[in-house]
């Protein structure tokens, strides 16, 4: 299904929902209402929505601790996501997983993962299952460019190619591996070239251009469904906030971040919609709708109960 102008409006609203979700989390975090860490994806919404919206609900997704956007774009219920952030029994993992482990197999979300590259072989495994059962579902794995030096990542590249798996790997290259510039930590920092070296169909796209991401993933999915094997898409983007809450961001200048904001995906998508005939009033209506959806999710989460202590002992083999 192409990203028609009408659907692009919905995608714009979806990006706003993700942005507002994380802005709300930041505020809750600052109020001390959220435990553990929070790794925002602010500035990377186009890779999430562009990629996940090019797929079917029954396609599989694994992502990372910076994966709120992808999880929501794939269809994770927002109220359950917000409740999970607040550690409530109505959360998508009943308060056991938290920010870094959003999971909902009913929408194909096999899990965000807190180990860098840890979820990449899981997507490969889901792709293998699809292939073995002669189904046409594909699997997509999102990761940052910081993942490309992990052993399991490189091993998975090899497996995906030799087994011709229906797998789409999306590298969100935001230039920083946690708090280090990636060009200092990575031998071939244009990571798609590594994948090409493994035999992948590999490309680089503008990750802040939602249509570019959508088109690349849509083509990769069609190829995978037809038995053409895996594709590697390096989506160039920028993380506008720190690696996590409390990151002093000494590795970059305020000027650099300010410049990056000019190119951020939601603003760009808004401009594109204006080009396509939307009015400022249309955009502000979409913004208002996103705002209302987040407010409802927050209200649901805050009014939910904490899990009972006895619930700590369920959902595991004991």
């Amino acid at each position: 299904m192409p990203l028609t102008p009408e659907r692009l409006q919905d995608a714009y609203r979806q990006m706003l929902i993700i942005r507002k979700f994380e802005e709300t989390i930041r505020s809750l975090y600052q109020q001390g209402k959220i435990r553990g860490s929070f790794h925002p994806c602010v500035g990377q919404e186009a890779t999430a929505v562009g990629g996940c919206w090019a797929l079917r609900k029954d396609d599989y997704l694994t992502c990372t601790y910076r994966g709120h956007g992808q999880a929501i774009a794939k269809g994770l219920n927002l109220q359950a996501a917000m409740a999970e952030m607040l550690g409530k029994e109505t959360g998508c993992s009943k308060g056991k997983g938290g920010s870094m482990h959003f999971t909902d197999p009913s929408v194909g979300l096999l899990g965000a993962n807190a180990i860098v590259a840890g979820g990449v072989p899981h997507a490969a495994g889901a792709a293998l299952a699809s292939q073995l059962q002669k189904k046409d579902n594909v699997a997509i794995a999102y990761f940052g460019e910081g993942a490309v030096n992990q052993g399991v990542f490189l091993e998975s590249l090899n497996l995906a190619v030799i087994w011709k798996l229906p797998l789409i790997l999306v590298c969100e290259n935001n230039l920083y591996s946690e708090m280090s510039p990636s060009h200092e930590t990575t031998s071939v920092v244009e990571t798609y070239k590594r994948a090409a070296g493994f035999g992948f169909e590999a490309m680089q796209v503008d990750g802040n251009d939602i249509e570019a991401v959508y088109n690349a993933v849509e083509q990769a999915a069609a190829r995978a469904r037809a038995g053409g094997g895996p594709t590697y898409i390096e989506a160039m983007t920028y993380r506008l906030w720190g690696h996590m809450m409390g990151d002093p961001e000494i590795y970059r200048t305020k000027e650099e971040v300010a410049k990056a904001k000019e190119n951020e995906p939601i603003v760009r998508c808004g401009k594109r919609l204006i080009e396509l005939g939307c009015t400022d009033a249309d955009l502000s209506r979409l913004d208002g709708e996103a705002e209302a959806i987040i407010a409802a999710a927050l209200q649901f989460a805050e009014s939910s109960s904490a899990p009972q202590p006895a619930d700590a002992f369920t959902d595991v083999f004991i």
């Binding site: 599989y60 694994t62 197999p105 096999l110 899990g111 840890g118 990449v120 072989p121 899981h122 997507a123 490969a124 495994g125 889901a126 792709a127 293998l128 299952a129 699809s130 073995l132 059962q133 699997a139 052993g151 399991v152 091993e155 998975s156 090899n158 497996l159 030799i162």
Partner: peptide, 28 residues
């Protein structure tokens, strides 16, 4: 050979692949 599958010498990835396949309903 599909169901009795030789792997490369890369334990981390093929155990991980087993996990992914198990999550979507297979019994590796």
């Amino acid at each position: 050979a599909d169901r009795v599958r030789d792997t490369p010498i890369s334990e981390s990835s093929f155990v991980g692949v087993g996990i992914g396949a198990a999550m979507v309903g297979l019994r590796p």
